[in-house]
Simulated scan of single mutants.
Amino acid sequence: MTSNEVHLPPFRNIDDFILASARFGPPDYQNKERWNNRILQNLLYYQTNYFVVALTAFLLVMYISPLETILGGAIVSGLLVVLFYVSQNRTNVEQFKRDYPFAVIFMVTAISTMVMYTFGSIAVFVFSVALPMLLTLLHASFRMRNLKNKVQNKVEAVGLKKTPMGAFLRAFNQDIQISF
């Protein structure tokens, strides 16, 4: 096993995550750096729990409204593919707009109508993605850190143990500084 391998940390027990031994308190809204540090540290320490909560919340919305979630996801994915194609092929798109202006008007009208007609499904899909993020952010903001949390995060920051959340945070240039 090399030090470059990414490992999923263990699932933290429910008692530590949300029940009796968990300590919750409001973040210091005046000190954004300290609040950001609390969120980052909790994201690293409870990442497996957050993944399970996110998957459970997504599956719950999927169970309640399966067709709307799938249709909304397909529409959003299709729109993202179209936007990616347009952004990558600007010259071809500009030429097509000049050559076939009525086709462009028809396509924009058709796509707009489809989006408006399926707006409820798009909203359900966005909710199925936003709800897990909201739950994670709320827990990470209000869960106060303990000594075990701080020690485990120090190991991650030093680079001895690499985790998916650590790689994700580094990809978004979030400096993982541990303060005790």
Rank of each mutant, 00 (worst) to 15 (best):
2 T>F: 01
7 H>I: 14
8 L>H: 09
23 R>I: 15
24 F>G: 03
24 F>W: 04
27 P>T: 08
29 Y>S: 12
35 W>F: 10
39 I>K: 01
42 N>R: 04
43 L>F: 10
43 L>T: 13
43 L>E: 13
44 L>E: 11
46 Y>G: 13
47 Q>K: 01
49 N>A: 08
50 Y>I: 08
53 V>E: 01
54 A>F: 07
55 L>N: 08
57 A>C: 12
63 Y>D: 15
64 I>W: 07
64 I>P: 06
67 L>E: 09
69 T>K: 07
71 L>F: 14
72 G>V: 05
72 G>T: 06
72 G>S: 04
74 A>Q: 11
76 V>S: 02
76 V>N: 05
77 S>A: 09
79 L>S: 12
81 V>H: 00
81 V>I: 14
82 V>Y: 04
83 L>D: 15
84 F>V: 14
87 S>H: 12
88 Q>K: 03
95 Q>M: 00
96 F>L: 00
96 F>M: 01
102 F>Y: 12
108 V>G: 02
112 S>H: 05
112 S>K: 02
112 S>P: 00
115 V>Y: 05
115 V>D: 13
117 Y>G: 09
117 Y>T: 13
119 F>T: 03
121 S>Q: 11
124 V>I: 12
129 V>E: 05
129 V>S: 01
131 L>R: 01
131 L>C: 03
133 M>T: 13
135 L>R: 02
136 T>N: 06
136 T>F: 07
137 L>G: 09
142 F>A: 12
146 N>I: 09
147 L>K: 08
148 K>V: 15
149 N>V: 12
150 K>C: 08
152 Q>V: 14
154 K>E: 14
157 A>H: 05
161 K>Y: 13
162 K>A: 07
162 K>M: 11
162 K>H: 11
168 F>P: 02
169 L>G: 03
171 A>P: 04
174 Q>N: 05
176 I>W: 06
177 Q>M: 01
